[in-house]
Structure formats: structure tokens, C-alpha cells
């Protein structure tokens, strides 16, 4: 990721940072490399799962499944498709969402808690110096979105709602949520200086 960020172009040259190099070694069965990778990503995996799944015991269970899945499928990672972090987080989000979507119907879920979930999503996090800057930057960039963009993005990502559920929750047309998810994320991308 650092290398890609410095590279600054938008071509699809393969990512080749520390995490990508670790994943490469993990794909060849290197358990020490996996433990390093664990150190680098486990907190983020667990944090994201917790936002979506809520229940602490189930969250740990899902996080454990995801981390083992990283070990299992490391050879399937393709650095030309994106960074290792994005690959792992996409997998994490999918697993977390699968868990909540299978466990309970969307209607059973606490909508009220979800609607203004983006603030709690941050407040629940125990403060940790190293993450504060990242968090502040994301918070600042979320603050630059319109309310509808922000609520759509955070409900979908941190709460795991589909865009249909998000539209229902916000009482907004489906097409509007679809575009708000896209333009909200594009604005975040530009604010955070993400390149790929």
C-alpha cells in the first residue's frame, strides 16, 4: 500500500508492499509470515467484523474464520487487482455480511440503531494512539459528504445493509441510494488520497 500510494499513477501495476510480500510467502505455507500478517491485519479484521456483526462472541468467530481463510486462499490473491489490505477487507466484509444476513432477516435487525450508526461506529472504538490519525482523517472526510451520502455509505459498510435495505431505512429511492453510495465513495477516495 505505501508503495502504491507513493507511485501515484493510476495504472494497474501490481501492488508490491510489505503486506503483499508477506501474502506471497503465506501462499507458500510460511507460518511465520502468516503470523506477521496476522499482526498487521487482525485488529482491522476484528474491528470491521464487530461493526457489522455486533455480537462480540460471534464477531471473534467470524474474524477467526476470515483470518484462516486468508491462510487458505493466499495463493488466490492477485496484486494486479488491488492491495492486500483491500483484498483482505473485501473478504472480511463479505463474511461478516454473510453471517448477519444468514442469522437474521433484515427486518429483525435494529434499524433505529443502524440509521445513525456511523457516529457510534467510531465511538465504540477504544482509543489507540496509532489509529487516531487514521480515524480522524476518515472522520474528517466522512464529514465532507452530504448527509445522505454519509448515511448511505456508513449503513452499507459498517452495518452491512444492502443498498435496498439502506434505501428502505432512509426512505429514499433505490436509484438515489445507488448513486449516493458511488458519489459518496468517490468523494471519500479523493479526500483520502486513495490511488489504485
Amino acid at each position: 500500500m505505501p508503495v502504491a500510494a507513493r507511485r501515484g499513477d493510476r495504472s494497474s501495476a501490481p501492488y508490491a508492499g510489505a503486506l503483499e510480500s508477506l501474502l506471497d510467502r503465506v501462499s507458500r505455507g510460511d507460518q511465520q509470515a502468516f503470523e506477521s500478517l496476522y499482526t498487521a491485519v487482525a485488529g482491522t479484521v476484528l474491528g470491521l467484523v464487530r461493526r457489522v456483526v455486533r455480537d462480540p462472541a460471534q464477531s471473534e468467530e467470524v474474524a477467526q474464520e476470515v483470518l484462516i481463510e486468508v491462510w487458505r486462499s493466499a495463493a488466490r490473491f492477485d496484486p494486479r487487482q488491488g492491495s492486500a489490505m483491500a483484498w483482505i477487507m473485501t473478504m472480511t466484509h463479505r463474511r461478516a455480511v454473510d453471517r448477519v444476513r444468514s442469522v437474521q432477516a433484515a427486518a429483525d435487525r435494529d434499524h433505529r440503531a443502524g440509521v445513525h450508526g456511523y457516529t457510534t461506529a467510531f465511538d465504540e472504538v477504544s482509543e489507540q494512539v496509532e489509529r487516531r490519525l487514521e480515524r480522524e482523517q476518515v472522520r474528517r472526510c466522512l464529514g465532507q459528504l452530504t448527509e445522505l451520502q454519509r448515511e448511505s455509505v456508513t449503513l452499507a459498510y459498517y452495518r452491512g445493509y444492502t443498498y435496498r435495505e439502506t434505501a428502505d431505512l432512509l426512505g429514499t429511492a433505490l436509484g438515489t441510494v445507488k448513486t449516493r453510495l458511488r458519489d459518496g465513495l468517490i468523494r471519500l477516495r479523493d479526500c483520502l488520497g486513495v490511488s489504485a
Binding site: 487482525a42 488491488g82 487514521e134
Partner: peptide
């Protein structure tokens, strides 16, 4: 690009995992 952006949203909610998670994994 948008998936990289989403990963940044994840990094912003990272936690300190319990030690026994490492052991189990």
C-alpha cells in the same frame, strides 16, 4: 479504487484483538 477506499474505512475502526484469537488462529 473504491475498494481501496472502503479498506480505509475498515482501518479506521481497527481494534486490539484479544490474545487468544492469535493462539486459536
Amino acid at each position: 479504487e473504491l475498494q481501496e477506499t472502503a479498506a480505509r474505512l475498515a482501518l479506521a475502526v481497527a481494534e486490539v484483538p484479544p490474545a487468544d484469537l492469535r493462539t486459536r488462529v
